[in-house]
Nucleic acid binder design. Sequence first.
DNA 1: GAAACGATTTGATCCAAATCATAATCCGTG
DNA 2: CACGGATTATGATTTGGATCAAATCGTTTC
Lengths: 248, 248
Amino acid sequence: MNMTEPILKERNILNQLKVVCSLCSLRELCLPIGFGPDELQQLDALTGSKRLVKRGEHLYRTGSEFTAIYAIRGGFFKTSVLHDDGREHVTGFHMMGDIMGLDAISTEAHVCDAVALETSEICEIPFDKLSDLSMIMPVLHQNLHKIMSREIAFDHEIMLMLGKMRAEERLAAFLLNLSQRFSARGYSAASFQLRMTREELGSYLGLKLETVSRIFSRFQEEGLIGVQKKLIELKDTDGLKRLLGGLA
Amino acid sequence: MNMTEPILKERNILNQLKVVCSLCSLRELCLPIGFGPDELQQLDALTGSKRLVKRGEHLYRTGSEFTAIYAIRGGFFKTSVLHDDGREHVTGFHMMGDIMGLDAISTEAHVCDAVALETSEICEIPFDKLSDLSMIMPVLHQNLHKIMSREIAFDHEIMLMLGKMRAEERLAAFLLNLSQRFSARGYSAASFQLRMTREELGSYLGLKLETVSRIFSRFQEEGLIGVQKKLIELKDTDGLKRLLGGLA
DNA sequence: GAAACGATTTGATCCAAATCATAATCCGTG
DNA sequence: CACGGATTATGATTTGGATCAAATCGTTTC
């Protein structure tokens, strides 16, 4: 073996990385562990096919062909399914650092709508390219599995919430989770802006919008949170946690 | 390049396949698409580390180290999480052909208990070996993604059920899903034995056991199903589907 | 800047499922 | 096979959240 082969291989990887829209977004997001410093620098240096999705626009729709997964660089999305009778069910809220579209791999068609709740920047990652690439980059391969596994585990938490918690507990759990996610991304854990309506939040939590509104008011009376329209301030995190009691 | 290298590689794969407990179980189950006839025959010929789990025994427990995923060759499992206050929440029912343990990849520790509801035969698949192997077998790699993706999509359906459906709709949806799963495995779609108690079923569906019992009785009065203890007979599948209305 | 529409809050009433209670039945085990 | 605990069925009552209703507040839009 001579030295040219590894170099060629290296170059090939770099080319593919470009195609793969740059993993700079992935670096910031969910795939950071395990790359060496050099690899990280290379990933960072690459610029990829980013795209703006304006508030209210669809990133993808139910039934459209699955070709890519999407890393959110900034902004806020909801995913939802629409029923025959016109009712909407919100299946998730997604922010900077989250990956969307993983549930479509098995059917090769998207199974929900993804809509931007504010103007957002996303990074499109062609899945076949990512898949090929992960065959030669073990770390990427592992991280891909971890991301999917994390989504499964997170969904199980949601199922617990929907199946076992009362309305107050659901709201408390939601606020604490959102706070924690903002905090993990460098934003304030105590104060944040909701991007969704009461109706969308209710749909996600299995509640009616009136119930969401009432419980926000009640939490405010009890000094647990401050509410000004969409601006939420967590005033007594321990109190909220106490509400959850024995549940997770 | 000479001819020895591919042959060595091939042998290496076969050795690893043995370690990987044999993919014969996987063949029957969730990874069947994409292997050539020769590969399939080889997979079938291999016998792997199967294990019996008796009724009531744990396959794994919350917090135990994640080392393997499990393919069910026969039998029936529930997965559940236990809360501080002693309450149990059932997160899933699993039968022949299902893969369990995927939600533990990200944390490297199991996040739920898996208990056999009847004496069952499982195949343990060491995950690091499977992961290595999938690096050199693209089809295995793809199928692994598909399985995980399918689990995510299925969980979204459960979330819909828990968030939007009334008790009757949940039971109807559950019975139809179970029937369809039995049917896909070659068993009768119209008549089957429930392996779980009313309480476990209620826990899974977000209902109390009394509600489950009452609705089974009501369905029977209406001629939708026949119930004799745990033996369920679907008498009017269309009627059950009609109950679901616009949902799913 | 007024009009129009959407989002939120709050009140009154209703209902599905939980809870409480009691049998009846099943099934594992000594 | 008879005992005892677990499971199921069913009735009576309670209640949390849905539904119906109306007023207020915001924010597009023309």
